[in-house]
Simulated scan of single mutants.
Amino acid sequence: MNQTVRPERRVLAQRVTLAHGGGGKAMRDLIEDVFTSVFAPPGMEDQARLMDASLLEPGAELAFTTDSFVVSPMEFPGGDIGTISVCGTVNDLAVGGARPLWLSAAFIIEEGVEITTLRQIAASMQKSALEAGVRIVTGDTKVVGKGSGDGVFVTTAGIGVIPPGRRMLAESVRPGDIALVSGVLGDHGAAILAARGDMDLTSDIRSDCQPLNHLIEAVLTAVPDIRAARDATRGGLASALNEVAYAAGVGIEITEADLPLRQEVRGICEILGLDPLYLANEGTLVLFVPPDQAVSALAAMKSVPAGRGARVIGKAVTAHPGTVIMKTVLGGARIVDMLVGEQLPRIC
Rank of each mutant, 00 (worst) to 15 (best):
E253R: 14
V223F: 03
P276N: 03
G165F: 12
P211K: 04
V173N: 08
R15E: 15
I226P: 10
N2A: 06
I84L: 14
T328N: 13
R266A: 10
A319G: 13
G133P: 12
D187K: 12
M51A: 15
P7M: 00
G267Q: 07
L50G: 09
Q3W: 09
G79N: 03
R49P: 05
V134Q: 11
Q293A: 08
E243M: 10
E57C: 05
G314R: 00
A132N: 11
R311I: 03
I121F: 04
A232N: 10
T65H: 08
K127W: 08
D225N: 06
P175Q: 01
R227T: 06
T17L: 10
A299I: 05
L339Q: 13
R6G: 09
G341D: 02
M27C: 10
A63L: 11
A232F: 04
E217F: 04
L212K: 02
L180S: 12
E282D: 14
G283L: 06
T83E: 03
K142N: 11
F35W: 15
V184N: 14
K25A: 14
E253P: 00
Q293W: 00
A299S: 13
V154H: 08
A123M: 06
S85Y: 05
E171M: 04
V154C: 09
K142S: 15
P73N: 04
V173H: 10
A232Q: 00
R15Y: 15
I216F: 05
M125P: 07
I268A: 04
R230A: 14
D337G: 09
Y246S: 15
I335A: 14
L241W: 03
L277T: 12
K327A: 13
T155V: 11
A222M: 05
H188S: 01
A53M: 03
R206V: 13
N91W: 06
P175T: 00
C209N: 12
T284H: 00
M199I: 13
A247W: 02
A280G: 04
E61L: 08
A179T: 04
M301P: 05
I192A: 01
G139H: 13
R166T: 13
G82E: 02
C209Q: 08
S37G: 15
T255M: 07
H20R: 07
L279V: 11
R230P: 02
Q343D: 08
R227Q: 07
A218C: 11
D140R: 15
D275R: 05
G96D: 07
A191H: 12
S296F: 03
D67I: 01
A229H: 12
F76N: 13
G112H: 01
E282G: 14
L18K: 13
E131Q: 14
G307E: 01
M168C: 02
M27H: 15
G133K: 09
L237A: 04
A195S: 14
L220F: 01
T17Q: 05
P305N: 07
A240L: 00
T255F: 08
G112R: 00
E110G: 01
A280T: 15
S207W: 04
V143E: 04
M44P: 08
C87H: 04
G133C: 09
V336Y: 11
A63T: 06
D337K: 05
M338E: 11
G267T: 12
G283K: 07
N91E: 07
P77M: 07
S303I: 02
R196M: 00
